[in-house]
Amino acid sequence: MYGKGLRTLSIATVAALAAALSLIFFYAPLDADQGFIQKIFYLHVPLSIVALLGFVAGGVYAILHLRSGERRWDAYSYVCIHLSVIFAVGVLITGSIWAKASWGHWWVWDEPTLVSFLIVFLLYATYYPFRYAIEDPERQARYASVFAVTAGAFVPLNFLAVRLAESLVHPRVFATTAGGLPGSMMLAFLVSIAAMALLWVTLVKLELTAKSASGQLKRLRRALDAPAPGAPSRVAPEV
C-alpha cells in the first residue's frame, strides 16, 4: 500500500535533484561577496528548511495519533522525525564546512542560528532513547507522540526567536530590506528546496513501505504460528 507510486516519486526526485544541481553549478552566478563557496548555500539551507518542516510534520502526525489512537500515525510521526534527524546531521556538517570556509571557524558559539539549530537537533536526538526506554508499545507510542508535539511546537518558536535576534553574522535568505537573492539565484534556490522536499518525501515513503512490509510479515508469522527469526528487534513502531 505504501509502496504505491514510489517508483514515480523516485524518478521525480532524481530529475529534480539533477535540475537543481545543473542550476546551481551552471546557471546561478557566483556570489559577489563569497564567490564559489556560496554554492554550499543551495545545499545547506534547503536541507535545514526541509528538516525543520519535517520535525513539524512529525508533531502534526503525533497530534493525529493522540486524537485517534491509530498506530499508523505514530509510525508516520516516527519516520518523519527519523528522516529529519538524518537531514539535520547533514545541515550541521555542511554548515560547519561553510563556516570554516567563509568565517575561518568550524563553529561559532555566539551565532544564534547555529546554536538554536544545534539545540533543536539535540532535542530530537533524545527522542530515540526516550522512546526505546519504554517497553509497552501503547505507552511508548503515546509518550513519543507527546514528545513529538511538544518538540514540534518548539521548532517554529525557536525559528521566530532567532529571527528576532539582532545578530546579522549569519546570512539571511529572504531579507526584508534591499539585497535579497537575485532572480537567477532565487530560481536555483527554489528548485533546490523542491528537490530536497521531494527527496525527503521519497525516503519517508520508502521507510514506511519497509515498516509496513515488516509489520505484515510479523502478522503472517503469527497467523501461521511460525517460529520467530533470530534475534528479536527493538520495539519500533509498525504500520
Partner: peptide
C-alpha cells in the same frame, strides 16, 4: 573574510556535497 580562490573554495564545496551524498548512500 575575502572570498576564497576557486581551487581552495572548490575543496570545501566538494566536501559539503560529498557529505550529503555519503549520508544518503549510508541511509539507502
Amino acid at each position: 573574510m575575502p572570498a576564497l580562490p576557486l581551487d581552495e573554495a572548490g575543496k570545501y564545496v566538494a566536501g559539503a556535497y560529498v557529505v550529503f551524498v555519503v549520508l544518503l548512500a549510508v541511509y539507502v
